[in-house]
Design a binder for these strands. Sequence first.
DNA 1: ACTTTTGAATATTGTACGATATTCTAATTA
DNA 2: TAATTAGAATATCGTACAATATTCAAAAGT
Lengths: 171, 171
Amino acid sequence: MPRGGARLGAGRPKGQGKYREPTKPIRIPESLLGGVMEFISTEGYNLPLYSCAVQAGFPSPADDHIEGKLDLNKYLIKHPTATFFVRAAGDSMVNAGIHSGDILVVDRSLEAKHGKIVIAAVDGQLTVKRLHKSKKDTYLMPENDNFEPIKFEENSEVVIWGVVTNVLHQV
Amino acid sequence: MPRGGARLGAGRPKGQGKYREPTKPIRIPESLLGGVMEFISTEGYNLPLYSCAVQAGFPSPADDHIEGKLDLNKYLIKHPTATFFVRAAGDSMVNAGIHSGDILVVDRSLEAKHGKIVIAAVDGQLTVKRLHKSKKDTYLMPENDNFEPIKFEENSEVVIWGVVTNVLHQV
DNA sequence: ACTTTTGAATATTGTACGATATTCTAATTA
DNA sequence: TAATTAGAATATCGTACAATATTCAAAAGT
């Protein structure tokens, strides 16, 4: 004998799947499969960002500190095709907060303006310096008194690779 | 009349597709579709890492500086489910390379050992300090002479949230 | 002999579909 | 009347499949 029957609200409810939301099948290159799986399982590496800043009003519980969610790749990399990293060596830029071993995020698509910290190839060697432009000359300035400025000649072997946007320091 | 015919090597060659390699269809939650697309188009945000370090032998062209490829999320986040970020405020840790406005990567799964920089909630307020453990006492030490150490009592309102692994500084 | 045309062969790709999982309610049972 | 059960309804998921794209070389044309 029949049981159940036509009625409103029968059937499996939406959002009961593995991801609690609808999905779409798309094709993934095999080499990126693992990465995509991880990307999904971490929800796109969107991790919470809290704030140390003093809150208005009375001292508040933990949740009130939350500022939002952050994906480091999206936060640090504005132009994926124009970005690369450089591992800093030496202490010529400690005053700018760049220590030996730090990873520098470099954007090749940004204009190398006066005052920006840039990566330059000098004599086939990569160096990180602050760009100092005046009406007459352009210099690559270290931020450490033990090092000498490098004069930037138009037809010299000095090539600016890109502008440093962030420093990743290991504590 | 028939043309062509059975023969070796006929047909579309492998690796001619959009991704130059075989693909597999998998289901993606709709909310992550955009992120996954971006992830694929940037090949998993794997960007080149160059080295400033002095190379052995004669000055070398650009390619010789390459150290490999780097995905920031993988590099900075070892335990995705236990990691969160904190935006630093104030100057109490400048000597440790932490400036106001920096993003701190915090791993909740690491043990807060002596000497580690930690995020702690003190009076409902998040602060970043260096953990100083001696036989008798535990202190939260600022790395700036203008600030006072905070004594860590077992039953106090001080709770350690996690260990700072990296500092992301904007130049 | 060289060029062009044409169908065969095979990789690629988006999506339709069968199988499964889950939940609801009416019918049945205690 | 309350607890249980079976069938209906519908979302979900992996993958098979049809349609497409691309290349190759034999046949036809010049």
